Amino acid sequence: KYLVLALYDYQEKSPREVTMKKGDILTLLNSTNKDWWKVEVNGRQGFVPAAYVKYL
């Protein structure tokens, strides 16, 4: 498993997404889509914009 760092705040806009705050450390679950990565944060799984996170 990889960890990624939230570069920006992101507010979920659909039930498939998750909210994150700048500085959050997220567990990367799937990065096959170049635009949306599946992550786990605070016990929830969902998608965030790939451009908003970077590998640690």
Score class of each variant (00 low, 15 high):
1 K>C: 13
1 K>D: 09
1 K>Q: 13
1 K>T: 14
1 K>G: 12
2 Y>K: 14
2 Y>P: 14
2 Y>E: 13
2 Y>L: 14
3 L>Q: 12
3 L>P: 06
3 L>D: 06
3 L>F: 14
3 L>I: 10
3 L>A: 07
3 L>R: 09
3 L>G: 04
3 L>T: 09
3 L>N: 07
4 V>Q: 01
4 V>G: 11
4 V>H: 04
5 L>S: 06
5 L>H: 06
5 L>C: 09
5 L>V: 15
5 L>K: 09
5 L>D: 02
5 L>R: 09
6 A>P: 01
6 A>S: 06
6 A>D: 00
6 A>W: 04
6 A>G: 03
6 A>Y: 03
6 A>K: 02
6 A>C: 11
6 A>V: 09
6 A>E: 01
7 L>Q: 06
7 L>W: 05
7 L>F: 05
7 L>Y: 05
7 L>I: 13
7 L>D: 03
7 L>P: 00
8 Y>E: 12
8 Y>P: 01
8 Y>S: 11
8 Y>H: 12
8 Y>A: 13
9 D>V: 02
9 D>A: 06
9 D>I: 02
9 D>W: 02
9 D>F: 03
9 D>T: 05
9 D>S: 08
10 Y>V: 01
10 Y>W: 11
10 Y>D: 01
10 Y>K: 00
10 Y>N: 00
10 Y>C: 02
11 Q>Y: 14
11 Q>R: 09
11 Q>A: 14
11 Q>C: 10
12 E>F: 05
12 E>L: 08
12 E>P: 15
12 E>Q: 13
13 K>P: 04
13 K>N: 10
13 K>V: 10
13 K>M: 13
13 K>H: 09
13 K>A: 13
13 K>I: 08
13 K>D: 06
13 K>L: 11
14 S>R: 09
14 S>W: 06
14 S>L: 09
14 S>Y: 07
14 S>M: 07
14 S>N: 12
14 S>G: 13
14 S>Q: 09
15 P>T: 11
15 P>S: 12
15 P>H: 12
15 P>Q: 10
15 P>M: 08
15 P>W: 09
15 P>N: 12
16 R>K: 13
16 R>V: 14
16 R>W: 15
16 R>I: 14
16 R>P: 05
17 E>C: 06
17 E>N: 05
17 E>Q: 11
17 E>D: 06
17 E>W: 03
17 E>L: 06
18 V>E: 01
18 V>K: 01
18 V>H: 03
18 V>F: 09
18 V>Y: 03
18 V>W: 03
19 T>R: 05
19 T>F: 04
19 T>H: 05
19 T>I: 03
19 T>A: 07
19 T>Y: 04
19 T>Q: 05
19 T>E: 04
19 T>P: 07
20 M>F: 10
20 M>T: 03
20 M>W: 02
20 M>Q: 02
21 K>G: 06
21 K>A: 10
21 K>M: 10
21 K>F: 10
21 K>D: 04
21 K>P: 00
21 K>H: 12
21 K>L: 08
22 K>V: 08
22 K>L: 05
22 K>R: 12
22 K>P: 04
22 K>W: 03
22 K>A: 13
22 K>T: 08
22 K>G: 06
22 K>E: 09
22 K>C: 07
22 K>H: 06
23 G>H: 05
24 D>L: 04
24 D>H: 05
24 D>N: 06
24 D>C: 06
24 D>T: 06
25 I>F: 06
25 I>V: 12
25 I>G: 01
25 I>H: 05
25 I>P: 02
25 I>T: 08
26 L>V: 08
26 L>K: 00
26 L>Y: 09
26 L>W: 01
26 L>D: 00
26 L>T: 01
26 L>N: 00
27 T>S: 10
27 T>G: 07
28 L>D: 00
28 L>T: 02
28 L>S: 02
28 L>Q: 01
28 L>A: 03
29 L>I: 15
29 L>P: 00
29 L>Q: 04
29 L>S: 03
29 L>N: 02
29 L>A: 03
29 L>K: 05
29 L>E: 03
29 L>R: 04
30 N>C: 11
30 N>W: 07
30 N>M: 08
30 N>F: 06
30 N>L: 09
30 N>Q: 11
30 N>H: 08
30 N>G: 08
30 N>D: 15
30 N>A: 10
31 S>Q: 10
31 S>Y: 09
31 S>M: 11
31 S>V: 10
31 S>E: 10
31 S>P: 08
31 S>L: 07
32 T>K: 11
32 T>S: 15
32 T>H: 12
32 T>N: 13
32 T>Y: 10
33 N>W: 07
33 N>K: 06
33 N>A: 09
34 K>R: 11
34 K>L: 10
34 K>G: 09
34 K>I: 09
34 K>T: 11
34 K>Q: 11
34 K>F: 08
35 D>T: 13
35 D>I: 12
35 D>P: 03
35 D>L: 13
35 D>Q: 12
35 D>C: 12
36 W>P: 00
36 W>S: 03
36 W>A: 02
36 W>Y: 08
36 W>C: 07
36 W>F: 08
36 W>D: 01
36 W>H: 03
37 W>K: 02
37 W>V: 10
37 W>D: 00
37 W>S: 04
38 K>Y: 15
38 K>P: 01
38 K>R: 12
38 K>H: 13
39 V>E: 00
39 V>F: 00
39 V>K: 00
39 V>T: 01
39 V>C: 05
40 E>V: 08
40 E>F: 06
40 E>M: 09
40 E>T: 06
40 E>Q: 09
40 E>P: 01
40 E>G: 06
40 E>I: 07
41 V>K: 13
41 V>Y: 10
41 V>R: 12
41 V>P: 00
41 V>M: 12
41 V>L: 15
41 V>F: 14
41 V>Q: 10
41 V>C: 10
42 N>T: 06
42 N>H: 12
42 N>D: 13
42 N>K: 11
42 N>C: 09
43 G>C: 07
43 G>S: 07
43 G>H: 07
43 G>I: 02
43 G>T: 06
43 G>D: 08
43 G>M: 05
44 R>A: 07
44 R>G: 04
44 R>W: 04
44 R>S: 07
44 R>K: 12
44 R>F: 07
44 R>P: 01
44 R>L: 08
44 R>Y: 07
45 Q>K: 11
45 Q>H: 08
45 Q>L: 08
45 Q>T: 14
45 Q>N: 08
46 G>Y: 02
46 G>K: 02
46 G>H: 02
46 G>F: 05
46 G>Q: 01
46 G>W: 02
46 G>V: 04
47 F>M: 09
47 F>G: 01
47 F>N: 04
48 V>S: 00
48 V>D: 01
48 V>R: 00
48 V>I: 10
48 V>M: 02
48 V>H: 00
48 V>E: 00
48 V>W: 01
49 P>N: 03
50 A>Y: 02
50 A>L: 02
50 A>G: 05
50 A>M: 05
50 A>W: 01
50 A>Q: 06
50 A>R: 12
50 A>K: 07
50 A>T: 06
51 A>H: 12
51 A>M: 13
51 A>S: 14
51 A>Y: 10
51 A>F: 09
51 A>G: 12
51 A>L: 11
51 A>V: 11
51 A>I: 11
52 Y>I: 07
52 Y>L: 15
52 Y>S: 12
52 Y>M: 14
52 Y>W: 06
52 Y>A: 14
53 V>R: 00
53 V>K: 00
53 V>H: 00
53 V>I: 09
53 V>E: 00
53 V>A: 02
53 V>C: 11
54 K>S: 12
54 K>V: 15
54 K>Q: 15
54 K>L: 13
54 K>M: 15
54 K>R: 13
54 K>F: 09
55 Y>I: 15
55 Y>K: 13
55 Y>D: 11
55 Y>L: 15
55 Y>Q: 14
55 Y>E: 14
55 Y>T: 13
55 Y>F: 15
55 Y>V: 15
56 L>V: 13
56 L>T: 08
56 L>R: 04
56 L>S: 07
56 L>F: 13
56 L>P: 06
